[in-house]
Simulated scan of single mutants.
Amino acid sequence: MARLQESAAESSGAPSPAAVRKAVLDEFKTRATFAGRLAEIDALLWAQSGSVGQTAEATMADHLAALGIRRVEVPEGSDTEAFVVTEGEGEAFELLRPAYVDTMTGKLILAGQLKRVPGSIAQNTSGGEA
């Protein structure tokens, strides 16, 4: 029956369900790749905060928002899973790189990095919130 429907779809000029499925999956892969690259670029700009112009920072924040990418700078609740602790000792954390989450899917695009530091209050040495 499914074979008959595919044959009818091909003869009518409509794309087959398999072709549509492949196109949708390819688009998700393309979006994921692009979102990953954009997150990497934003992370580099975030690390250079202060030396990068405000226009570039604002433009990047606008692009992230338009694409449904959330920059996470304060690990709270379930957001702590989006970070990797890279080094250090202590109870508090210093943000080395923000995490990026796809708001459409809830999936992590780029893991953030935290460094353990002495003290009880989390610290942020650079960057701004998107």
Rank of each mutant, 00 (worst) to 15 (best):
M60E: 09
A18Q: 14
E73F: 00
G112F: 01
I41A: 10
F93T: 13
S11T: 14
V20A: 13
G68H: 08
A61G: 09
G88R: 07
S120F: 02
P17H: 06
A130C: 06
Y100F: 11
V74N: 14
P15I: 02
E57R: 10
A14T: 07
I109K: 09
R97C: 08
A65E: 15
G68E: 09
L44W: 02
G50L: 02
A47G: 12
L45G: 08
D62G: 12
K107E: 15
K29T: 08
T55A: 13
H63D: 11
M1E: 14
E91N: 13
L44V: 05
T30S: 14
H63S: 10
T59H: 04
A18F: 01
S16H: 04
A9N: 10
D79E: 15
D42N: 14
S11R: 13
E87V: 02
E81P: 01
K107W: 00
E57Q: 14
G88L: 05
A43E: 11
G128F: 03
A43L: 02
A32W: 00
E27R: 07
S7N: 07
L95C: 03
Q48C: 06
D26R: 06
F83W: 05
S12R: 08
S12Q: 06
Q123C: 02
R97N: 07
P118S: 06
E40C: 02
K22Y: 01
A8G: 08
E10D: 08
Y100D: 12
E10N: 05
E76K: 06
A58L: 04
Q123Y: 00
L25F: 05
A92E: 11
A8K: 12
V85K: 08
E6R: 14
V24Q: 14
A58S: 15
A43K: 09
K29V: 06
S126E: 12
K29L: 05
V117G: 15
D42C: 02
Q123D: 15
F93S: 15
R3N: 09
L110G: 10
E129Q: 12
A39V: 04
D102S: 12
A92V: 05
A32R: 15
T105I: 04
N124Y: 00
G77A: 06
V20R: 13
A47W: 01
A82V: 01
P118G: 05
V72Q: 08
G112T: 09
Q113A: 05
Q54G: 13
D79N: 05
A65F: 01
S78P: 03
G106D: 09
G36K: 09
Q5C: 09
V84A: 08
M60G: 07
L110H: 07
A19F: 00
A39E: 10
G53Y: 03
V72G: 07
E57C: 04
T59F: 01
R116F: 00
D102P: 11
S126I: 06
S78G: 08
I109E: 13
M1G: 15
A65I: 04
